[in-house]
Measured scan of single mutants.
Amino acid sequence: TYYTVKSGDTANKIAAQYGVSVANLRSWNGISGDLIFVGQKLIVKKG
């Protein structure tokens, strides 16, 4: 599943929404920190 980042989103918020850990969200998308951008497409695997 892909999720498009919206204004006000955070890695924590997206992870919680899908029931996954922030560490997994980072791993699936090659993100090292919490910096995400509006319009960015993230791979999300439901927990």
Results as ranks from 00 to 15, higher is better:
14 I>R: 00
34 D>L: 08
42 L>E: 00
6 K>G: 06
14 I>V: 07
25 L>G: 00
40 Q>G: 03
39 G>Q: 02
9 D>P: 01
41 K>N: 09
13 K>V: 08
30 G>A: 11
19 G>C: 08
36 I>T: 04
7 S>T: 13
35 L>R: 12
22 V>D: 04
25 L>S: 00
46 K>L: 15
16 A>E: 13
43 I>G: 01
11 A>T: 15
21 S>L: 07
47 G>P: 15
29 N>M: 03
24 N>M: 14
30 G>S: 11
23 A>P: 06
33 G>R: 06
9 D>W: 02
3 Y>N: 01
21 S>G: 05
47 G>D: 13
21 S>R: 04
3 Y>A: 03
28 W>H: 02
43 I>F: 09
43 I>W: 10
18 Y>S: 05
40 Q>P: 01
37 F>A: 09
46 K>W: 14
45 K>R: 13
29 N>E: 01
36 I>F: 09
6 K>A: 08
38 V>N: 05
41 K>D: 06
17 Q>F: 13
32 S>D: 13
7 S>Y: 14
6 K>Q: 13
35 L>P: 08
5 V>G: 02
11 A>L: 15
34 D>G: 08
47 G>A: 13
32 S>Y: 11
4 T>I: 15
12 N>S: 15
15 A>Y: 03
6 K>F: 03
31 I>H: 04
5 V>P: 01
21 S>K: 06
24 N>P: 01
47 G>Y: 12
27 S>T: 13
5 V>K: 00
1 T>K: 10
27 S>E: 15
28 W>G: 01
33 G>S: 10
38 V>Y: 04
42 L>I: 09
47 G>V: 13
1 T>Y: 13
10 T>W: 03
31 I>R: 02
5 V>H: 02
24 N>F: 07
20 V>Q: 04
3 Y>L: 03
34 D>K: 07
22 V>A: 07
13 K>Q: 11
27 S>K: 14
46 K>D: 11
14 I>H: 00
40 Q>E: 07
14 I>F: 02
42 L>Q: 00
29 N>Q: 01
1 T>R: 11
30 G>F: 09
3 Y>G: 01
36 I>A: 02
16 A>W: 09
25 L>N: 01
1 T>E: 13
8 G>W: 04
46 K>E: 11
43 I>C: 11
23 A>M: 09
26 R>T: 11
16 A>H: 10
24 N>D: 15
23 A>G: 09
2 Y>R: 06
41 K>W: 07
24 N>K: 10
20 V>A: 05
26 R>Y: 15
46 K>I: 14
1 T>F: 14
6 K>S: 07
47 G>I: 14
40 Q>I: 07
44 V>R: 00
20 V>S: 03
47 G>M: 12
17 Q>K: 13
1 T>P: 08
32 S>V: 15
12 N>I: 15
14 I>G: 00
29 N>W: 04
20 V>C: 11
32 S>T: 14
33 G>H: 09
26 R>H: 09
15 A>K: 01
30 G>Q: 11
1 T>L: 13
31 I>S: 04
26 R>G: 06
12 N>E: 15
35 L>G: 11
36 I>R: 00
23 A>H: 11
38 V>H: 05
5 V>T: 04
29 N>H: 01
36 I>C: 06
10 T>E: 05
29 N>G: 03
44 V>M: 05
15 A>F: 03
44 V>E: 01
21 S>V: 05
20 V>T: 08
2 Y>D: 04
21 S>Y: 04
35 L>H: 12
47 G>T: 12
32 S>Q: 14
19 G>Y: 06
41 K>F: 07
8 G>V: 03
9 D>G: 00
17 Q>D: 10
7 S>D: 14
28 W>R: 00
34 D>F: 08
37 F>G: 06
27 S>H: 13
6 K>T: 08
21 S>N: 07
4 T>A: 06
15 A>E: 02
43 I>K: 07
12 N>R: 13
31 I>T: 05
1 T>C: 10
13 K>D: 11
45 K>W: 13
33 G>E: 10
6 K>E: 08
37 F>N: 08
40 Q>K: 05
7 S>M: 14
28 W>Q: 03
26 R>A: 12
13 K>C: 08
32 S>R: 11
20 V>D: 02
38 V>T: 08
41 K>I: 15
17 Q>N: 09
45 K>T: 11
20 V>Y: 03
32 S>M: 12
14 I>K: 00
19 G>N: 10
40 Q>H: 05
8 G>H: 06
6 K>V: 11
24 N>Y: 07
4 T>L: 08
45 K>C: 10
44 V>S: 01
42 L>H: 01
38 V>G: 03
26 R>L: 15
44 V>C: 03
33 G>P: 07
10 T>Q: 03
36 I>M: 08
22 V>S: 05
7 S>V: 14
16 A>C: 13
32 S>C: 11
22 V>R: 03
22 V>N: 03
11 A>N: 03
13 K>G: 13
39 G>R: 02
1 T>M: 13
7 S>R: 11
46 K>Q: 14
31 I>G: 04
22 V>M: 10
1 T>D: 11
38 V>E: 10
9 D>F: 02
17 Q>P: 00
43 I>Q: 08
11 A>S: 07
45 K>E: 10
12 N>W: 14
11 A>V: 15
19 G>I: 04
21 S>M: 05
29 N>T: 02
15 A>N: 01
12 N>D: 15
7 S>G: 09
23 A>N: 10
18 Y>D: 00
25 L>R: 00
46 K>Y: 13
41 K>Y: 07
28 W>S: 02
2 Y>P: 04
22 V>Q: 05
21 S>I: 05
25 L>C: 04
18 Y>K: 03
14 I>P: 00
45 K>P: 06
8 G>I: 02
16 A>I: 11
42 L>G: 01
8 G>T: 06
16 A>Q: 12
25 L>V: 04
26 R>D: 05
30 G>W: 07
35 L>M: 13
11 A>W: 15
37 F>I: 11
16 A>D: 11
4 T>D: 05
16 A>V: 09
5 V>L: 01
21 S>H: 06
13 K>R: 09
23 A>L: 08
8 G>P: 02
25 L>Q: 00
20 V>L: 10
7 S>K: 14
34 D>P: 07
26 R>F: 15
15 A>L: 03
3 Y>E: 02
41 K>M: 12
39 G>I: 05
12 N>H: 14
9 D>N: 02
11 A>H: 07
30 G>V: 07
3 Y>I: 08
25 L>E: 00
42 L>F: 02
15 A>M: 03
3 Y>H: 14
38 V>F: 05
39 G>E: 03
22 V>L: 13
4 T>V: 14
24 N>A: 12
3 Y>S: 01
18 Y>F: 15
26 R>N: 10
33 G>Y: 06
